[in-house]
Nucleic acid binder design. Structure first.
Length: 196
DNA sequence: GTGAGGATGCACT
DNA sequence: GTGCATCCTCACG
């Protein structure tokens, strides 16, 4: 079942935790590339100094101030894309970053997109999974509730896992309270988690 | 297997 | 001009 708007409108920490175990689906020609979400991070509002929206509304962050369930995709370090999902109500900027995925099918396609052969490294990082699933700027602001191009579905399998929390990665510029917040959610023991 | 450093372009003061 | 929610390569031994 495709996740609906109401799911994404929940509190961001709830969405980040609940996205674990869900299936990300990317339409690729006639094929559907499917991956299991195993790692997420929450970025919550204007008081979270790790969140891009803490610097106010700009052209880039505008999407985070909009409706939940849309993709917030930005370009960083001159070569990488990051895929976030907008949460909370309108005017309340927040999002969940997808940091790692476990590939469930079409491994050959992912390898081609990534130009590597090692399965463990295909999608175990936020920029890696974007490259593997061909997610880029053209999907920024895309509505994930449409069930086209890019969306998320519930999953009746993979319900047998434990959730772990830890501080978010790569945000040394943020205030200490935000650096220490355990807003990173991981599926315990999954082999496709990003490093640390 | 681990760590340092470079790549690279765009949004934003 | 600055800095970035990262990844890869290349040393090292």
């Amino acid at each position: 079942m495709i996740l609906k708007r109401e799911f994404y409108q929940q509190p961001t920490l709830e969405v980040a935790r609940s996205l674990l175990g869900k299936k990300l689906i990317r339409q690729h020609g006639q094929q559907q590339l499917i991956g299991l979400i195993v790692e997420t991070e929450a970025y919550i509002g204007e008081n979270d100094t790790a969140c891009h929206a803490s610097k106010g509304k700009t052209q880039r962050t505008e999407i985070m101030f909009g409706r939940a369930g849309h993709a917030y995709i930005y370009f960083i370090y001159g070569m990488h894309y990051m895929f976030n999902i907008v949460t909370e109500s309108e005017g309340n900027p927040a999002a969940v970053l997808l940091r790692a995925i476990q590939p469930l099918n079409h491994i050959d396609v992912l390898k081609r997109h990534r130009n590597i052969t090692e399965e463990k490294s295909l999608t175990n990082g936020p920029a890696k999974l974007c490259q593997a699933y061909n997610i880029d700027k053209t999907l920024n602001a895309w509505d994930l509730c449409l069930g086209k191009k890019l969306w998320i579905e519930t999953n009746d399998e993979h319900n047998d896992y434990q959730t772990e929390t830890s501080p978010r990665i790569g945000i040394n510029y943020a205030e200490e309270k935000d650096r220490n917040a355990h807003w990173r959610f991981t599926m315990k023991g999954n082999p496709f988690l990003s490093k640390r």
